[in-house]
Amino acid sequence: MISVSLNSYIALSVILFALGFLGVLIRRNTIVIFMCLELMLIASTIALVAFSRYNGTLDGNVFVFFILTVAAAEVAVGLAIIVALFRRRQTIQVDALNSLKD
């Protein structure tokens, strides 16, 4: 197997995190914002698994387990909130959800 340096994995993780961050900032659809949050979580797991592998330990991998669990719970709760929001306001665009601002 060709040995890939640790920096490549970290760089990929950073790029993925930045893309997710960009998506959270520029998109207006709440569901797409949620997908970009998932991208950021996945980016952190790549870095954790890479560090764990290159140090010969298992702690990072176990931590990724917990991250996956929390991410699954977060998606369930977040999508339930979106459904409740859509039921009440008939929209999920963040532009229209400004009743706290006014």
């Binding site: 920096n7 970290i10 760089a11 950073v14 790029i15 995190f17 930045a18 893309l19 961050f21 960009l22 900032l25 520029i26």
Partner: peptide
């Protein structure tokens, strides 16, 4: 502004690496 912020994240992490 968002593109600049994303680029700053990449630059900061790149300098760290």
């Amino acid at each position: 502004a968002s593109v600049i912020t994303g680029a700053l994240v990449v630059v900061g992490a790149a300098s760290f690496i």
